[in-house]
Design a protein around this nucleic acid. Sequence first.
DNA 1: CTGAAAGCGCTTACAG
DNA 2: CTGAAAGCGCTTACAG
Lengths: 330, 330
Amino acid sequence: VALLAQVSVSTASRALSGGHYVAPPVRERVRAAATHVGYQPNEAARGLRTTRTMTIAVLTVGLRTLPFLDFLDGFGAHAEAAEYTVLLANARNSEQQYRFLVGRLFERRVDGLLLVNPGELHEAARPFQETARPVLAAFGRGPSNASIPLVTTAELDAVRQGMHRLKSLGHTSIAYFDQAVALQSSRPGYVARAAAECGIACRVAMTDPDADGGVIRHNLVNALAAPTPVTAVAVTHGLVPQFIDAVRSLGLKIPGDLSVFTFSDSALIDPLIEPRLAAVHNDLVEMGGRTAKILIDWICDGVEPANVTDLGLSSWREMPSLGWSRLSGG
Amino acid sequence: VALLAQVSVSTASRALSGGHYVAPPVRERVRAAATHVGYQPNEAARGLRTTRTMTIAVLTVGLRTLPFLDFLDGFGAHAEAAEYTVLLANARNSEQQYRFLVGRLFERRVDGLLLVNPGELHEAARPFQETARPVLAAFGRGPSNASIPLVTTAELDAVRQGMHRLKSLGHTSIAYFDQAVALQSSRPGYVARAAAECGIACRVAMTDPDADGGVIRHNLVNALAAPTPVTAVAVTHGLVPQFIDAVRSLGLKIPGDLSVFTFSDSALIDPLIEPRLAAVHNDLVEMGGRTAKILIDWICDGVEPANVTDLGLSSWREMPSLGWSRLSGG
DNA sequence: CTGAAAGCGCTTACAG
DNA sequence: CTGAAAGCGCTTACAG
């Protein structure tokens, strides 16, 4: 490019970047030459010089949850608007793979890292923290990761709302079904807490991430056969298909036999479920965008976010599955 | 590192890479020093020197289709096994974003690029092709992209099987519902062809990618009210929720009123549909792995794949939704 | 087997 | 405003 425009590489570089301290005619000449040759800067080389790769990574433990795709959309949209490329690394439920990926990401010198639900995988982020590179956690984190700033849409209030509704409907014993994604989540904790606050007994049933329908069904049968049988169930999004399947195969009616609510509804599967499921709804697209902003601001301005940022994007969504139809005679 | 081990950087480099042409004791000393300092190579710098970034990119037009996640899992697993990092770029249904991303990917000098269903977006890949960098298409491609090698699991045979079943059940007029994802797919074409071969009339209804349930319902009503009313529907995976919703709201029974089959079943939503839907099933995890292999082999060995590679991973999956229960008296 | 040197493609003080 | 020069962190012929 420099050759063609008959200037030095330094001048060319200046013309192509800011364009300051370059005579306008020269600048135009360089730019014309650049487009003519189809010049594309080499980001890697630039990164080497500036020590900034303009890349941020999202490290996830699994990619199969629909709501997370919403999050990714929001995150990606904001990141790209800020000229950042996002590298999506998926550990596919393997701790080993997770550690391996952190290494790769570090090698690539990504400018920032987002850990999605890192649970107790704390050694993982250490290389980043040691080099003072921004690392953020989203959704949840284990106690040992308490030093990693967390972005969350605290669901507790919405969960409380749901519990109050259950209480007012007369429920006193419920169950919460979740997946133990090789990582610890804090949700079972506050679900149980919110239930307790309302004087509702809550049994938590955790299953393997790859548990089949049989396991869920088994858990459901157990919950219904307990000394104080469960009359309502809260179920995490990823387990909804197996759960609904179990409910049907047992011949149970929602909400006739069981009130049900879920977390993070998804337009992709919700229309398939009759009746519609009440939910702790999260605006995940928005959360994604806000999370990207926090991370990028940290990278650019060096302002470390608060230890926990509550985006307040959760809300309670009432639906017939809770018992509404029964009470209102609808 | 070199300082600590008291050797030159060249020796250090050799010790850390192959380890050849280095005296064993020296090699060990360097390696010990490296782990001691927690040395992590800078991939960008290495890439600058070797002109290989060990990164491959997957460019998609939308990330919201479940089956595609299976593909990604398979692709990622193989790529990582081969030491490649995969960069996932999502154009979110925007052509403009698509072009923009190709630019970014090129800037990053990814070693290879996978275009997922690029349709007619052909100018996009040009910078890569001009620099002789491997570009592969998966699933489908528009005619103007015929020069980009394609990896596919040709569905035609399975579709034919399905059509024969419909024929034997007495259907003579069917509809195919698909989404026009801003890009052209070849599927409507061969679905119609397979139908014609069996002497079945097939009307194709394409909808916007973000069409709501109302549109699908409208299309369905139209198909049923045609001069020769449709008695069976084939529906693309992404439209299943809206379609089922429409069927229910119209009070139609499957397979009583309508035989139905779909494409690319997904364990995430299938259990929610009653009765189970017949499908042209694709082993997408496997396809992902094989596609990654083809791309990486091309990068490493320079062997350009055939213009179209048919992986043969499609099969016909019979389910009650087709009418089986009615005929067999099940 | 080892070290000094050049270079990958860029950016950025530093002198003109 | 512009050019010559140094350097980002690595690798790889090229001499020893």
